[in-house]
Amino acid sequence: MSLLELSSIAAHYGPSQALFDINLSVAEGEVVALMGRNGMGKTTTIKVICRMLTESSGAIRFAGKDMARVPSHRAARAGIGLVPEGRRCFPNLDVRENLIAAARPGEWTMDRVTDLFPRLAERADQMAVSLSGGEQQMLAIGRALMTNPSLLILDEATEGLAPVVRHEIWAAIARLKADTGLAIIVVDKSIRELRGVADRAVIIERGRSVWSGGFSDLHHDITERYLGV
């Protein structure tokens, strides 16, 4: 049974239609890569999943529940954890406070997050604004985990980071997949790394989900046609 199911989703920003026909399903414990070129609707799809944008038609179900009228904070409480694009921490809170502010009861605690990202323990009393880009990203992932989600969404989690930090983030995602039953949606441009962690890929092109399948079926003609690589 799917944990998340999007059927024929269309969405608008004011009068402009951004999504036309998105179909996406994520099973429990599954890692799905959401791919596509810039401006094709990946982040908009994530906004719909997190209820930050309401669909104009179509249906969205999460854990068997219709999410049509659910506001974004209730979606997060229902188990959808988002690591937003651009490492968005709470800049004027320190690392510990960022994590405490988001904490909800469950198996993810401060200790478990700092076990995943030991650097956060070293920086516990440091203001988020003074962290490096990589550390802020780790904090953003840690903060999302502290909400104890059943679906974690990582929107461009490694964008703009140094190779060594990117490697750390990918290793953490792989560890999350191996050690937890967490379903994950990863938005990223790095096909090589996605291939290493994701079970399946969904490609979005001009607001439509145009391809879905395993990475073994993701041939060069598809990546060239939809991703330009």
């Binding site: 904070h73 209730r74 997060a76 937003p84 502010a101």
Partner: peptide
């Protein structure tokens, strides 16, 4: 600091 961000962690601003 940011209302939208707190909503994504399940808090009702």
């Amino acid at each position: 600091q940011n209302e939208e961000r707190v909503r994504t962690v399940g808090l009702d601003a």
